[in-house]
Nucleic acid binder design. Structure first.
Lengths: 194, 194
DNA sequence: ACGTTTGTCTACCAAATGGTAGAGACGTGA
DNA sequence: TCACGTCTCTACCATTTGGTAGACAAACGT
């Protein structure tokens, strides 16, 4: 559905508050009432968009979790790359999730429940790998949160990076992804004096 | 000026798009026209708020940069703590900077130029410490950006952390700050097999 | 006592917002 | 052919938005 895709892109890049139904309709090439025909209210559209975004993110992350070998650093690296990929291909996706804080509680809970499965799996995985000493030991729950914030923040704040002198082009993106991966890897490598 | 403080808090917590002049005026206990008397337009108010936020952030960061001893890990740690402090004391501050992407280019540049001094100093410092091998070697510019994204993201997305099972209270804040500091420290420690 | 400046107010306004009601075009099965 | 469901449209509406114009009162120097 083109309306859904367009809404996701606009909400994700400009923020929920800054996008009206008219904006979305114009972009699709249709009247606002057509939007309201398919999604019976703005709130309904937002829920649908969140669902759509969750679907897209889940697919990408699940695939990454399964891929690659046994080494946890490799695996985390794969997930980082997976979450970072939408930054290039679909910048709106992470931006959308980032904007969810601006919504009402029920929207937030809606998205949270959709993502709960992956989140649990990630935390459990980190826990077990820490127990076997293959990752730096710390609070796995908070680590997962910090990791997400790092990847998402790096990906959704090109303006911050530009302030630090970064260039927002294809080469720049590869470069920031490489640095990000090394950063995360360094942060997770066990401090084994063992 | 109470209008300025109130505007900073509201913009920072709800986002620019979601706060009207009426909202600010109501919160202050005054009419919208009084707001427009002091700041001749919405755009003018936003600029003033950005200036105010930059001032506040600069003071905190500059103080942290000067404090503590010679060890770069200690120093970076001090800056991390300094940037994280507003998360507790004035949640709106980092939230505001985060929201700047939603504004027009000239507002962005306005804030950027205000922060340029500290940014440069940080990047130069990281560069020199890497050269002397006391920090993990990487692109100092991108490292600074990633560091900021990590601290800011962790601090401004309590909702993400809550999704990961975190509790948003005083003890939780101390806990996340501790994890964040260890995370950053691990990420910066030189991989010296030297 | 009087003009001026300062700060807040009421009274508006045009534009944009989310949403309702219902008309008209289109295809499809009976 | 006709009734029906599907989809998009025009025509409105009440509310909210940023902003202008100007009245009103207090404070102040003269």
């Amino acid at each position: 559905m083109r309306i859904l895709e367009t809404a996701l892109d606009l909400f994700g890049t400009r923020g929920f508050g800054a996008v009206s139904l008219d904006d979305i309709a114009d972009e699709v090439g249709v009247r606002k009432q057509t939007v309201l025909y398919w999604f019976k209210s703005r709130s309904g559209l937002i829920d649908a968009v969140l669902d759509h975004a969750a679907d897209e993110l889940l697919i990408v992350v699940e695939a990454a979790i399964r891929s690659r070998g046994d080494d946890p650093l490799e695996r985390v690296d794969a997930v980082v790359c997976a979450v970072f990929r939408p930054v290039v291909r679909r910048p709106a996706l992470l931006g959308l999730i980032r904007e969810v804080i601006r919504l009402e509680e029920h929207h937030i809970n809606h998205l949270r429940s959709r993502l709960a499965v992956v989140v649990d799996r990630c935390v459990n995985y980190l826990t077990s790998e820490m127990a076997s000493g293959r990752l730096r030991t710390c609070d796995p729950m908070l680590l997962a949160g910090i990791l997400y914030s790092t990847v998402s923040g790096t990906g959704t704040e090109p303006i911050v990076l530009e302030t630090f002198g970064w260039k927002a082009n294809a080469a720049g993106l590869r470069q920031v992804r490489r640095e990000l991966r090394e950063f995360v890897r360094a942060a997770l490598t066990p401090t084994n004096n063992a």
